[in-house]
């Protein structure tokens, strides 16, 4: 019995770890493509420093396009059935408006103080998702025939990579109404799309989540990334020290140093593990902020370099070094 007890405890711990932990779930949102919005007039034009710019007006698209609403509802139903309820763009835009109004009005009961909000906080108050389903469709006509051309792209919001896609044209029909053809198009291409999304998730579990990391230097810092530091018996540039840390801590050392100078570094295709053990010894789901905080601690402990972490969703973080 004495021999069996430790074995049983170990098994229980292993099972708890295996079944208790889940990776951070990416949020998915369907957004009509810029081409779709602009070609149908759901757009706003303004002049930015002398250059005329046209940007999509998603709110107007959602309010006045019944075909778009139908397609998004159909896709939402299918994704919810597969265990991935979609974030609703229309509701998200409405929430953001309400949130802004409430933030303006909120005041402390004791001193009447308002909510602290920096310009960057305000800038971050936009509709966000980790994977954007960029949707575009056209109802084509030729004589009495109608058919749908459908194009759906799954884009990782941080690495700007297309993780899944499905596109094609439906069979021409003379009798089916456009809403039925649209429903057919969604049913026809969603399985293919979800199959590719599944492959992306399987890759993620096998070789880690793909993220982007930027390292910047505060203007007030007394050094830059070419500064030499003494470490492990060698004099090394800070740029190399950071790169070695990334190499040591990514899954199978997978990353790409896409660009850099004495003031910044941009790491693309960084594969971070899905789980980590926090300082209290508990296993936690990993995201880019947590991963970059490991680099921040390493620089602080070994080189006395303070830094600030700027998070951009689940898949991108910036480490700004020089001060907090």
């Amino acid at each position: 019995m004495k021999r069996i007890l430790p074995f049983l405890i170990l098994t229980f711990i292993l099972v708890s770890i295996a079944f208790g932990q889940t990776a951070r779930r990416p949020t998915i949102m369907v957004v009509p493509s810029e081409q779709y919005c602009i070609s149908r007039g759901y757009s706003t034009t303004f002049v930015n420093e002398g250059v005329e710019q046209t940007i999509p007006d998603y709110r107007r698209a959602m309010q006045s396009d019944p075909d778009l609403r139908l397609v998004i509802t159909k896709m939402g139903g299918i994704m919810a059935d597969r265990g991935f309820p979609l974030k609703d763009l229309e509701q998200e835009l409405r929430n953001l408006e309400r949130q802004s109004a409430e933030l303006e009005m909120l005041a402390s009961t004791e001193t009447g103080s308002g909510i602290a909000e920096s310009p960057i906080d305000r800038l971050k108050r936009v509709a966000q998702a980790d994977i954007i389903l960029d949707l575009d469709f056209t109802i084509n006509t030729r004589g009495p025939q109608r058919w749908i051309t459908f194009n759906l792209r799954g884009l990782d919001a941080y690495t700007a990579t297309m993780v899944a896609g499905a596109a094609g044209s439906g069979q021409p029909s003379t009798s089916a109404p456009p809403d039925l053809l649209l429903e057919e198009a969604v049913l026809s291409y969603m399985d293919e799309f979800n199959g590719r999304l599944m492959t992306h998730f399987e890759d993620m579990f096998r070789i880690g989540r793909q993220v982007t990391i930027r390292v910047q230097v505060w203007d007030s810092a007394f050094f830059d990334l070419y500064e030499m530091f003494y470490y492990d018996g060698y004099d090394m540039e800070l740029i190399d020290i950071i790169e070695y840390w990334i190499e040591d801590n990514t899954v199978e050392g997978r990353y790409s140093l896409a660009d850099g100078s004495n003031n910044f570094l941009r790491f693309d295709q960084v594969r971070i593990p899905l789980f980590t053990v926090d300082p209290r010894g508990r296993e936690r789901a990993m995201d880019t902020r947590r991963f970059v905080s490991g680099l921040a601690s390493y620089l602080r402990q070994n080189f006395n370099i303070d830094s600030h972490i700027h998070q951009r969703g689940l898949g991108e973080a910036w480490l700004i070094i020089g001060e907090r």
Binding site: D191, E192, T199
Partner: peptide, 17 residues
């Protein structure tokens, strides 16, 4: 095996991968 694409119909991947 999955079901291949056809005219106006997208490919359906195999359920068990």
């Amino acid at each position: 095996h999955g079901i291949p694409a056809g005219p106006g119909v997208g490919r359906t991947p195999a359920i068990v991968t």
